[in-house]
Simulated scan of single mutants.
Amino acid sequence: MGFGINRVVVSGRLCKDPELRATRSGLDVMTVRLATEDRKRGADGAWVDDASYLDVVSFGGVAAAAARQLSKGSRVVFGGRVRQRTWEDEAGTRHYRVEIVADDVVVCGERAKAACAAPAPAQPPVAAAPVAAAPVAPADVYDEDIPF
């Protein structure tokens, strides 16, 4: 099998609230639909906004944390990989779905600002112990040794 890189980063707004459920083994799974925008030239030469809708799924702690922070309309950036699922229904029809499996989630916009603006709990000051500076050896590299 050849070498391939499967990494994607997408940003946009959520089309609806995330759905959080758990597998039989207790693993959290979050699914959501993301709307992304692109601009292209229309037939008359004017710029037109073009939307794409992507299915995103996340697992484990990332899924649980993201589902708590996200809601419909949230601006978000997902980082992950692309995967294609294939299944067959009762009638024998084969179905395909391409989705993003997100392992990184960054919330943007007002909700993220509010979370960042929340004051951190007060921590008592920690007395720093004096640290002795280690002697630094002189460098063995001189200007003549650098090839440029």
Rank of each mutant, 00 (worst) to 15 (best):
A43V: 14
A43L: 13
A43S: 15
A43D: 15
A43R: 15
D44Y: 03
D44I: 13
G45M: 13
G45A: 01
G45Q: 12
G45C: 00
G45R: 14
G45K: 02
G45I: 15
G45F: 13
A46K: 15
W47K: 11
V48H: 13
V48K: 15
V48I: 15
D49H: 14
D50Q: 12
D50P: 00
D50S: 14
A51S: 11
A51T: 05
A51R: 06
A51H: 00
S52V: 10
S52G: 15
S52L: 12
S52M: 13
Y53H: 15
Y53F: 15
L54P: 01
L54F: 00
L54G: 01
L54S: 11
L54N: 11
D55P: 03
D55N: 06
D55F: 01
D55Y: 02
V56R: 00
V56Y: 00
V57M: 05
V57I: 10
V57P: 06
V57D: 02
V57R: 07
V57A: 12
S58P: 02
S58R: 09
S58H: 02
F59I: 03
F59T: 01
G60C: 05
G60A: 01
G60S: 05
G61V: 10
G61Y: 05
V62R: 08
V62Q: 12
V62D: 00
A63F: 08
A63E: 09
A63C: 09
A64E: 13
A64H: 04
A64V: 01
A65Y: 04
A65S: 11
A65H: 06
A65L: 08
A65K: 08
A65C: 00
A66G: 10
A66F: 06
A66H: 04
A66N: 10
A66P: 05
A66E: 02
A67C: 06
A67L: 01
A67R: 10
R68Y: 02
R68K: 07
R68Q: 07
R68L: 12
Q69H: 03
Q69F: 07
Q69G: 03
Q69P: 05
L70K: 00
L70V: 09
S71P: 02
S71T: 11
S71L: 04
K72C: 04
K72I: 03
K72R: 14
K72E: 13
G73A: 01
S74F: 05
S74V: 03
S74R: 04
S74G: 10
S74L: 06
S74T: 05
S74P: 00
R75K: 10
R75Q: 10
R75M: 08
R75T: 03
